[in-house]
Amino acid sequence: MTVTILAVHGNGGGGTRFERVAEHLPDESTRFEYFDLPGFNGTPIDPEATDVAAYADKVADVIESLRRPDEPVVVLGHGIGGSIALDLASRRPETMDGLILHAPVGADLDTRLFPRLMSTKPVREVLRRMVAARPLRPIWRKLFFPIGAPKEDTDTFFEGYRDCAAFGQMFEIIDVEWFEALAPVTELPVVLLWGEHDRVLKSGQTEGITAKTPNAEKVIEPGWDHFPMLEQPEEYARVISTLAADLVTNPSA
């Protein structure tokens, strides 16, 4: 059986952050796909996408275009991509066969410092420009990639912020009210995946996400920070392909 994994990227960049992962899939039993959400990586922003559900429905459209007979689809959402995937699973669980939420955004939005700092448009725009600024990249590399990633890949990552028209909007639509209104996902097998040393979205937030995924399996990967798809792509490919296969072969495990 072949399992399709559709990766939904986080904020600031696009699907290109998963390129190295695709190169390291263990065998032909996994088909790995990724794409750019509207307003990311230079793609035009959709003026009608004014809430998380609208972005989630875009993911549903991609799933539909990828569907093959008798081939399950597992959605992998990272960061705000996890938020969007969670929204889709909450409203339209029939669109997918399994869900991997890798450090999703949603828990503790009313108490965490960073979401509160990003509550105003000027602050969001300044940060986006700073992350994209080439002179500051040596600093950002140490902060974002403490384990280390190829310079070519990190340059692509930072350039993504320059071309991200939807960056600020994500902080507006992914909020406490959105998260609290989500119906719990109980009809799908779900894995909550976190890096043990994630400094962007700490693994302790799994408890908050569990309220919306009460039956989820929790997996904490030692040695991972927030971007293992760039720092440890071979290991990341192995872990997510194994998790996806387990979700569709042992959905009640």
Rank of each mutant, 00 (worst) to 15 (best):
A56W: 02
T249Q: 14
K58W: 13
D57K: 11
A132Q: 07
A183C: 04
T50N: 14
Y236W: 10
V8A: 05
D87G: 00
N11A: 13
L193S: 05
T213Y: 03
V21Y: 09
E177Y: 00
V59I: 15
R67C: 06
H226S: 13
T249C: 03
D163Q: 11
R112D: 12
A244M: 09
T43L: 11
L188G: 04
R141Q: 12
F158N: 06
H9D: 06
E125T: 13
T43E: 13
P122W: 03
L247C: 06
T50S: 11
D27H: 07
G204C: 09
V52G: 00
R67V: 06
V200T: 14
A54F: 08
N215H: 15
R199S: 14
F158S: 04
C164R: 07
V190S: 02
R112I: 01
E217D: 12
G12F: 03
K212R: 15
P93L: 11
T111K: 13
R129K: 15
F144A: 15
L188Y: 04
S29G: 12
G39N: 08
V75T: 05
P104S: 10
A149W: 03
V123M: 14
S29H: 12
A181W: 01
L230W: 01
R17T: 14
D153A: 15
E172Q: 13
A132T: 07
P72K: 04
G148R: 09
A166P: 01
M229P: 00
A166Y: 03
F167I: 04
E235V: 08
T43Y: 10
V191H: 00
R112Q: 14
P222H: 09
Q232L: 14
I147M: 07
A7H: 05
Q169P: 01
D46R: 12
F145M: 10
